[in-house]
C-alpha cells in the first residue's frame, strides 16, 4: 500500500460507512491532481503535508460535534447536575435504610449495626452519584447529537431560548426570600437520620452499657412494634419531605404557595407524631422503670413528662417553621 492510500484510509476510517467510498475516490483524484507528471516520494510528502492531519480533515467532513456537551446545553446540564446529584445521594441514603429494614437484622451490637449501615450507605451513595452523573451526561450527549437546530444559542432551564420574559421570573429572588440550598440539603440529611432512627429504634436508641463485647444496647426506648404500625405514614412523610425539597430547589425562594405547602406538611407531620407519641405502649416499660429509678418519679409522671415534652417541642418547632416561612414569603422586594 502506498502513502496516498494510507492517507485516504486514515481520513475515511473516521467517516460514516456509506460516505467512505465517494470521499476516498474524490480525495484520491484530488491528490493525484496536485502531483506533478513524474512524481517521487518527495512530491507525495509535500502534497500530503498540504492536505494536513487526516483526523482534522475527517472532522471537517463530519458535521457532528467533537465535544460531548457543547456551550448550547452546558448551562442546563450543569444546573441539572447540581440538583440531581444531591437528590440522588439522599434518595440512595433512604433506600439503604428501607432495604436494610426489610431484611431483618441479626441480633448484633448497636455499633455493628451502625457500622454495617454506614458501609452500605457510603457504597450506595457512590453508586447512585455515578449513575446520576452517567445517565445525565449520556442524555445530554444524545440531545447534543440529535438537535436539528444548529443555532448554537445557549439553552436555559426549561430548554427555551432566552427571552426578556425570563427576567420576570428571576427579578424577585432577594436575599431575604431566598431558600438556601445548604438548608434544603441539611433538612434532607436530617430526614435520613431520623428515618434511620425511627426504623432501627430498637437497635440504636436506648440505654447503652459497656460490656465485654463492647458497647451494647440493653434497654431500648421504644416498642418497635408500635413504631412499625405507623410505617406507611412515616414513609409517606419522608416522601413528602423529598418532594418538597425538590420543589424548593427549583423555586429557589419562598412564596405564598410554597409556604402553604410547608404549613400543610408541618401540620400533618405534627399530627402524625402526636398520634404516635400518645400511644399508650410507645415507650418500653423497662425504659420507663429505669428512668423512674434514676429520677425518683412515678412511672406515670415520667411518661407524662416525656410525652408532654415531646409534644411541646413538636408543636413549637412546627409553629416556628410555619410562621417563619410565611414571614419570608411576604417580604416585599420592590
Amino acid at each position: 500500500m502506498n502513502l496516498i492510500d494510507l492517507y485516504i484510509q486514515e481520513v475515511t476510517r473516521w467517516l460514516p460507512k456509506d460516505e467512505r467510498k465517494d470521499i476516498a475516490l474524490e480525495l484520491e483524484s484530488a491528490i493525484y491532481d496536485m502531483l506533478p507528471e513524474n512524481y517521487g516520494e518527495e512530491d507525495v510528502y509535500q502534497v500530503l503535508e498540504v492536505m494536513g492531519d487526516p483526523a482534522v480533515l475527517a472532522n471537517k467532513y463530519r458535521e457532528k460535534p467533537m465535544h460531548l456537551i457543547g456551550p448550547k446545553y452546558y448551562d442546563v446540564y450543569m444546573s441539572l447536575l447540581k440538583i440531581i446529584l444531591p437528590i440522588a445521594i439522599v434518595i440512595s441514603l433512604l433506600t439503604v435504610v428501607g432495604v436494610e429494614f426489610l431484611n431483618s437484622i441479626e441480633d448484633n451490637t448497636a455499633l455493628q449495626t451502625l457500622l454495617s449501615l454506614i458501609g452500605d450507605v457510603i457504597s450506595n451513595v457512590i453508586t447512585a452519584s455515578i449513575q446520576a452523573f452517567v445517565w445525565l451526561t449520556v442524555i445530554f450527549a444524545l440531545i447534543e447529537r440529535v438537535d436539528g437546530m444548529n443555532d448554537g444559542l445557549p439553552r436555559w432551564m426549561g430548554f427555551k431560548s432566552w427571552s426578556p420574559e425570563h427576567l420576570k421570573q428571576a427579578k424577585n429572588v432577594s436575599e431575604k426570600k431566598a431558600i438556601k440550598t445548604s438548608e434544603v440539603y441539611a433538612r434532607l440529611i436530617w430526614t435520613a437520620f431520623w428515618g434511620t432512627g425511627y426504623f432501627y429504634a430498637d437497635h440504636l436508641l436506648g440505654i447503652y452499657e459497656n460490656g465485654a463485647n463492647g458497647l451494647r444496647l440493653v434497654i431500648p426506648v421504644f416498642n418497635q412494634d408500635v413504631l412499625m404500625s405507623f410505617w406507611t405514614w412515616i414513609v409517606l412523610l419522608i416522601g413528602a419531605e423529598v418532594v418538597l425539597a425538590i420543589y424548593k430547589l427549583i423555586k429557589k425562594q419562598w412564596s405564598q404557595k410554597l409556604a402553604t405547602f410547608n404549613m400543610i406538611y408541618e401540620f400533618v407531620s405534627a399530627v402524625i407524631f402526636i398520634i404516635i407519641l400518645t400511644r399508650a405502649d410507645l415507650f418500653t416499660v423497662e425504659f420507663l422503670t429505669q428512668l423512674s429509678d434514676w429520677f425518683n418519679l412515678t412511672l406515670t409522671n415520667i411518661k407524662n413528662i416525656l410525652v408532654g415534652g415531646s409534644i411541646t417541642i413538636t408543636l413549637v418547632h412546627s409553629g416556628i417553621s410555619i410562621i417563619d416561612r410565611f414571614r419570608k414569603a411576604n417580604v416585599k422586594t420592590s
Binding site: 470521499i23 474524490e26 480525495l27 491532481d33 496536485m34 492536505m51 494536513g52 467532513y61
Partner: peptide, 28 residues
C-alpha cells in the same frame, strides 16, 4: 468544476483556499 480546477481558478482570482477546507465545504 472539480476540486483541483476550482482551487486553480480561485488562485488566479487571488483567493487562496486550502484543499482540506474545500472538499468538505463542497460536500456540505
Amino acid at each position: 468544476q472539480y476540486g483541483y480546477s476550482l482551487v486553480q481558478l480561485l488562485k488566479e482570482l487571488g483567493v487562496v483556499i486550502e484543499q482540506s477546507t474545500l472538499y468538505p465545504l463542497l460536500r456540505r
